[in-house]
Simulated scan of single mutants.
Amino acid sequence: MPIRHSIIHQIDKKPDGTPAVLHVSRTELAKSQVTEKLLNDFNEAYNAKQGKGWGFFHAESGAHPFSGWLRAFIEGFDFIEFSHTAVEHLTKLMEESNLSVGGHVLFAHYQQGMTDYLIVALLQHSESITVNADLSVTPSKHLDFGNINLAARINISEWRNNPKSRQYISYIKGSKSRKATDYFRDFIGCLEGVDGPGETRTLLKAFSDFVTAEDMHEDNAREKTQALVSYSMAQAKIGEPITLNELSELIDEDRPAAFYDFIRNKDYGLSAEIPADKRTLNQFRRFTGRAEGMSISFEQHLLGSKIEFDQEAGTLMLRGLPTQLTDQLKRASP
């Protein structure tokens, strides 16, 4: 993961309402193993965060100037000056939003594979204790990657090469403070473009329909479900989207385009690449079974809502039956 540029500034803002004080660095972080570990640890923590949003830049304007500054940097403007301009704007928005907590602001431009990324993140410290060489103890501070709430990652290559994309920015939505998330998203100038959980749910619905349409045997359906979940979770872990072509090849090696063609022919409205939502994937598990001319298959999240299982009686109660099934039952009734 070559790091091209990285720098850290500090916004000192106390909860007592006093104005924020910005401390800017005049030099980039040295390219070293420590810097690489910093970025690797951040990316690992960022990828593990659930509840991300995906979007694209507002049109460049006085209210949303960040994309213009980033474009100027990519075209040759000095990275340090770019980060100074951006962090000054962030400090101003933090003051206007009356948010009490500052932190260290990381800007990192790096390459992964053939793709360029920019990270912007507000990092906090945690207190800990360290044991010294003389076996005494002293308090120490360390960056708390487990508590990242304001951060965004911009796929620069996607932004530059595919201007119609609506998902080249990912950001942490956050569950504690919508106001903080909104001000940070305004700082980046990001419009929400792709609903990650919704897209993932649509993909899982398409897969369930595919399994039904193919009339798969129970073992085969279970194997393909595992392939889908394993691949999707692996993509989420490294912060990469689910690519439908790749997924289709994994699901059926003998017919690598079968699932992809099924999605396209049924017009589910999915993009060729979609962000994987880990929470939605964690809820997905398929129960299947066949016996004496009866085939039952449903997803785990339906238990307790549309499907109730009576363990003692060994029965299922179904609600919200498919219209096609109810029509057939009505026609068959005397």
Rank of each mutant, 00 (worst) to 15 (best):
P65L: 01
H89E: 12
F79V: 10
K31D: 14
K49N: 00
E312R: 15
L302S: 15
I74P: 01
H104N: 12
L244V: 02
L303N: 13
T315V: 05
E44T: 13
L22N: 04
F57L: 03
A257M: 09
V120W: 04
T115K: 04
R279K: 13
G68D: 01
H9A: 03
M114S: 13
H301C: 14
D12H: 03
K224M: 13
T115F: 07
L39K: 11
H125N: 14
D41A: 07
K330C: 04
L90E: 07
T27I: 15
S97I: 05
S6H: 10
A206T: 08
L106F: 05
H58T: 02
D116H: 06
K164S: 09
E199V: 03
T138R: 10
L29F: 12
V21S: 08
S140P: 06
L303P: 10
M216K: 14
S97H: 06
D215R: 14
A152W: 00
S175G: 13
L191F: 06
N220P: 09
R178S: 12
G189R: 08
G62Q: 08
S128D: 10
H64T: 04
R178W: 10
N47E: 02
T323D: 15
N132E: 11
P197R: 04
V21R: 12
P65T: 01
N162Y: 06
Q328D: 08
N43E: 13
R166H: 07
K278T: 14
L325D: 11
S6I: 11
D209H: 14
I156K: 02
E246R: 09
F77W: 12
R185S: 05
N161G: 05
S248F: 03
K49V: 09
V101Q: 11
D252V: 05
G68Q: 01
E60V: 10
Y231G: 05
K306S: 15
S100Y: 05
R222Q: 14
S165V: 02
K92Y: 12
D182K: 10
Q226W: 07
D116V: 02
I251P: 02
S208E: 12
V34M: 15
M294H: 13
T280C: 05
T202M: 10
A227V: 05
H301N: 15
P139Y: 08
L70H: 00
L303S: 11
P334D: 02
Q300E: 15
A133G: 12
L29H: 11
L244F: 06
E273H: 09
R290L: 10
R185G: 06
V101I: 02
Q324E: 15
G113V: 05
E75T: 00
G53E: 00
N147K: 11
K306I: 14
I263F: 06
N47A: 08
N245T: 08
R255E: 12
I172R: 00
D219Q: 15
E214G: 08
K173T: 07
I80L: 11
S140K: 07
G293A: 07
P275Y: 03
L70G: 01
S61N: 01
G17H: 04
G189I: 00
N147I: 04
R286D: 09
H109W: 06
M94K: 11
V87H: 03
W69D: 01
V105H: 01
S175M: 12
F66W: 02
E75M: 00
L325P: 10
S170L: 03
L90Y: 08
F66Y: 03
E127S: 04
T181M: 11
T130R: 14
Y183S: 03
M317E: 13
